[in-house]
Design a protein around this nucleic acid. Structure first.
Length: 573
RNA sequence: GCGCCCGUAGCUCAGGGGAUAGAGCGUCGGCCUCCGGAGCCGAAAGCGCAGGUUCGAUUCCUGCCGGGCGCACCA
């Protein structure tokens, strides 16, 4: 059938038919000659409005200077007569039962139910690949996320970045982008010196010396642990060194340890990176000097008060920024500029950075730097993630980074589990501040949306265990009478499964993984509803086979969507 | 003061300019001789305020009010 042609989904076919009908109407002079807008098709809010609807006529009304209802009438009539013709030549519009004018100028499409069964067949044939699209067109994208300083454990805020970043990476891959996940290690600069000084202070304390803790030091318990490990391993060895030597040694030791812990925590959270990029290599390889030189040559650097400044205000930043301090030490921005240059040089067409909202003021200067280097600033997308607050027993869990009073990602994962933590981080839009309800995330009950979704998957797995035990044989797909799936809950389920590819395409385009969380929850909901209304095992063989085919498609789709979020799809719970 | 994000049901949040604004939690009321009750069915309850653009605004724009986060030669 025409609408099952490769790579064509029913919406595209409807859209094409609408365009054709509008052209025909213009050719016949019943519609003014105008440029046609893109056809927007949606699933109408109510079932009486058919399977799909478009506001095409209303979009057209402005330009055509005609009543939208009149335009809709013309196009609908055109489509209906074409459909009637095509019934004799089962090609083009044979899928269309009726196109109908409605409301202020909508055209509602009522389709023959066959489209659902062919959709379901296509889903089953696609198997694990179902949902993957090519909307990304293989664009080379780098996603950089977390990039927390290796000076202490990851906390819950980093957890949101980690969950969202990895989900976005998976999502973009599913949508056909060529994605690389990268972590930028801030292993140079002041914070590393502070780390070394903090470890040094704790070390000396453990060796019984009175010390003044460094002003910008890290107060976390983990620093004491690091110092203790050094004592356990090497005892007094470092006391004999000069302070400078000792600090240098502690710097390397602490850095290596912190980095290893970072990787460990992230892996336990299901997050892996393709590249761990060291800031230090930029300094060591002279990339910062080279970048400054290039910017100088391009005319975007100047000296003032002994420092070297980037003329970032030329590209929309509030003010110019210091790149090399008057003491000759590059600022963090200097390294960041060199880093972004390096990313572009590596051949990425697009860069996505995921930052915490406390860094949003940094966007303009980096984009300005990118532009000053001659790259299109739009090729750098910075996604800002709002803050996370933890709630327990209905109360805010107070945290203070300065005093080391933080809930770490590791603790969170131990407390609520990896799956629940990831889901809670992913389920909100990036723009929304996240109130993380620890009690809800921990509860192993129907209150918890993660379990609700996973339970749907486990239930289906359970059904198939029983199918196997009972020795029920599944007929070949082409022998299953899918058109026995006619009840409302079955039809709803098939339609929802059918929406999956465009959910992926949309979520990827908008860099919004929370759409997948919402979709998965809706799909699970429709399944549970179906499950309560329709028996699967033990009904008439043709119904049984069709329903087993349906739940297979549900199971595959759930597993795929959960996989994008980095959440397991358990067969038992 | 300036910039970014957010104000939608009692609470936490979805809502790509359109037809009767959706979900979870909470509250209230139903459903187990039946494939996993970690489930299902039902009820009450809402777009911060004021303008503007539009045939049509919860959605876009402006102002105000309220909340969060920033405004370094820190990262």
């Amino acid at each position: 059938m025409y609408w099952r042609k490769n790579d064509m989904d029913v919406k595209e076919l409807i859209a094409d038919a609408i365009i054709a009908a509008a052209r025909q109407a213009m050719a016949e002079g019943v519609l003014a000659q105008v440029e046609l807008p893109k056809v927007m098709l949606e699933v109408p809010p109510q079932k009486e409005f058919g399977d799909f609807a478009t506001n095409f006529a209303m979009q057209l009304a402005r330009q055509a200077k005609t009543n939208p209802r009149q335009i809709a009438e013309v196009i609908a009539a055109q489509l209906n007569s074409q459909a009637a013709l095509d019934k004799q030549h089962p090609d083009a519009l044979s899928w269309l039962k009726e196109a109908k004018l409605a409301g202020p100028g909508f055209i509602n499409f009522y389709l023959r139910p066959d489209w659902l069964y062919d959709l379901l067949t296509a889903v089953l044939v696609a198997g694990d690949k179902y949902g993957q699209t090519r909307t990304g067109g293989g664009e080379k994208i780098q996603v950089e996320f977390v990039s927390a300083n290796p000076t202490g454990p990851l906390h819950v805020g980093h957890g949101r970045g980690a969950a969202v970043g990895s989900a976005l990476t998976n999502l973009l891959r599913a949508a056909g982008y060529d994605v690389q996940a990268e972590y930028y290690i801030n292993d140079a600069g002041n914070q590393i010196e502070n780390l070394a000084a903090s470890v040094n202070a704790r070390y000396l304390e453990l060796m019984g010396q009175e010390v003044v803790f460094p002003e910008n030091g890290y107060h976390g318990r983990d620093i004491i642990d690091t110092a203790q490990r050094i004592v356990d391993h090497s005892g007094e060895k470092y006391l004999a060194m000069s302070p400078d030597e000792r600090l240098a040694s502690f710097k390397e030791l602490a850095l290596a340890e912190k980095l290893a812990l970072l990787k460990e925590d992230l892996e336990a959270f299901g997050v892996t990176f393709d590249v761990w990029f060291s800031e230090r290599t930029l300094h060591d390889k002279g990339a910062i000097d080279a970048t400054c030189q290039e910017l100088k040559e391009r005319g975007y650097m100047y000296e003032k008060d002994g420092a070297l400044w980037l003329k970032s205000s030329a590209y929309g930043d509030d003010k110019d920024r210091v790149v090399i301090r008057d003491n000759g030490v590059p600022t963090y921005l200097a390294a960041d500029i060199a880093y972004h240059r390096d990313k572009f040089v590596r051949g990425f067409e697009r860069l996505i950075n995921i930052w915490g909202s406390d860094h949003h003021g940094y966007i303009n200067r980096v984009k300005a730097a990118v532009a000053a280097m001659g790259f299109e600033a739009d090729r750098l997308e910075v996604l800002i993630l709002q803050m996370v607050s933890l709630y327990q027993n209905g109360e805010l869990v107070k945290m203070s980074k300065r005093t080391g009073q933080v809930v770490t990602l590791k603790e969170l994962v131990e407390e609520v589990g990896c799956d629940a933590a990831r889901f809670f981080f992913i389920m909100r839009s990036l723009d929304s501040q996240l109130d993380f309800d620890l009690d809800l995330a921990k509860s192993r009950s129907n209150e918890n949306p993660v379990y609700y979704i996973q339970y749907a998957h486990a239930r289906i797995a359970s059904i198939f265990r029983q199918v196997k035990e009972a020795g029920i044989e599944m007929p070949l797909l082409e022998n299953i009478l899918l058109n026995t799936l006619t009840s409302e809950c079955e039809v709803d389920l098939i339609k929802k499964i059918g929406e999956y590819p465009e959910e992926i395409a949309l979520a990827a385009k908008e860099r919004a993984p929370h759409h997948i969380a919402r979709y998965t929850h809706e799909l699970a909901g429709l399944f549970h509803s179906f499950y309560n209304q329709c028996r699967i095992i033990g009904v008439e063989p043709e119904f049984q086979a069709a329903r087993l085919a349906l739940v297979t498609a549900v199971k595959n789709t759930l597993r795929s969507a959960l996989g994008i979020m980095g959440i397991t799809a358990p067969d038992r719970m």
